[in-house]
Amino acid sequence: MSPVVVASGRNNAAVTAEQQAPVSMAVRLQLAHAAVQWVAARNGIDLLHIKGYALDPTLREGRSSTDVDVLVRPDHVRRAARAFTDAGWRRVIGFETGSAFSHSLTLLHPVWGYLDLHRLNPGISQGSFGRMWERRTRAVIGGFPCPVPDLATQRLIVILHVGRSHPSPRGRRDLERVWYEATPGEQNEVRARAEELGAQLGFDVAFGRIEDHRDDPAYRLWKVESEGGTRLEEWRARVHAAETLVDKVRLVVLMPLVNVEHLENLWGRPPTRSELVREFFARPARGVREEWARMRRPDA
């Protein structure tokens, strides 16, 4: 990361010395939110800061974060990706290869660290950004006013995140804080927001009610995400959940392709042509092996 100048006093009011010093992740992330907002404002990009330091302090207690997450107005996503790369962020993981929900682009800046640029929030219907934007509020982070979702939507976003994660102590703590410690009135607001933003499935998954949604096209995807599954199960679920035929075809075409970005990040260098060829054949073979192992499991 970047060098840091420390100006320290020789006596009460002198400023003489300069030396290098570490910067905590907490400080760096708050400055990073400000940097992201600076770029967004300069480029006319509507985005909401979500999670991490963008959360209301009452919801953030005990949670740690390692990156900046923003949800971008769908029409502004392409412009945002270009604006951030122009401003010094480097693309690390693309939308299609980042997660089963194909929801975020991961960028890295030499000073500010990781930025997850979301084109959708898993569980919230894609056309809901406008409603979230209308209800937005502001959080001052690093001295900059950053647009954030209203408190009820913040609670919902944390709940949806718990829903798509494997059960964990952290997930339970998050639910405790954002849901069980909320007043009945606050819970009603979250329920209303879940309905308004088309987030009922993800909301119910967080509370173990996924089987209430067996007929939902996204059911299999949430099942794999929350309970785990093989690579093939994940791809089948992604194709099943895709809303249009074009999206389904695109996913089927992408499936056997080698994830070059992933290999580059894993190996710390771009793969060679022969390594790509080897990986092209190894990838489906791994998928078949996983499927075979799953079928042989006693509980399969």
């Binding site: 970047s2 060098p3 840091v4 100048v5 420390v6 100006a7 320290s8 006093g9 006596n11 009460n12 009011a13 002198a14 400023v15 010093a21 910067v23 905590s24 907490a26 400080v27 760096r28 708050q30 400055l31 400000a34 940097a35 600076w38 770029v39 401003a87 010094g88 000073v111 500010w112 690093g142 001295g143 900059f144």
Partner: peptide, 27 residues
């Protein structure tokens, strides 16, 4: 300039590139 105070120190940076400067004591 973005600025964050942490345990009596100020961390400041000119945006969008940084770097981060730490101001402590009289600074």
């Amino acid at each position: 300039v973005a600025a964050v105070e942490d345990e009596g120190r100020w961390y400041v940076a000119h945006l969008p590139d940084g770097p981060i400067h730490c101001l402590e004591g009289s600074a």
